[in-house]
């Protein structure tokens, strides 16, 4: 996921196989706005029901594709490896609102044996109230070469 596979050759290092993984890396928090057109497009692409006029619970995965997040993933995965999406968790304190602004906080950390990359995201209102937490777990596997 997150478009990382095509860049897997560009990272500086592969997963640490000695079990001394990196400490969590946290991105500076960034602002997002949930645009109605983006929600409508997401609903059309995911079998959602447009008449519900609600933000789909999986909508925040869009923010994993932002350049700063993608860069973090690519650096964390390393050279010659690709991420395989293994697990996903969404937890909501309150529904996200169309047209609202939020602050997104993301951290990533690796774990060994077998190597995994975990991303944790929190989505907070302008008033500082937590709305959602996401966790994305990716197994890091070697990129096979064409025969």
């Amino acid at each position: 996921m997150t478009g990382a596979a095509e860049h897997a050759q560009q990272g500086p290092a592969g997963p640490n196989e000695k079990g001394t993984d990196n400490a969590p890396v946290r991105l500076p928090p960034f602002k997002v706005r949930i645009e109605p057109a983006d929600v409508a497009e997401f609903l059309r692409a995911t079998s959602g029901h447009p008449k519900h006029h609600r933000v789909p619970i999986t909508f925040p995965v869009r923010w994993l594709a932002l350049p700063e997040v993608r860069g973090l993933i690519l650096r964390s995965i390393g050279n010659g490896f690709i991420p395989v999406h293994e697990g996903q968790n969404f937890a909501y304190e309150r529904a996200l609102q169309i047209g609202a602004d939020y602050t997104v906080d993301i951290e990533a950390f690796r774990t060994p044996a077998p190597p995994h990359l975990t991303l944790r995201m929190s989505v907070v209102t302008e008033e500082g109230e937590i709305c959602a937490r996401l966790e994305t777990v990716m197994r890091i596997v070697p990129a096979l070469k064409p025969a």
């Binding site: 996921m1 997150t2 478009g3 990382a4 596979a5 095509e6 983006d38 497009e41 997401f42 059309r44 692409a45 995911t46 995965v61 869009r62 994993l64 594709a65 932002l66 690709i82």
Partner: peptide, 16 residues
């Protein structure tokens, strides 16, 4: 076409 639509909507344009 459905995968392309989702790639655009979600930003997950992994060529895999």
């Amino acid at each position: 076409r459905a995968l392309e639509r989702y790639a655009i909507a979600s930003g997950d344009d992994n060529p895999l």
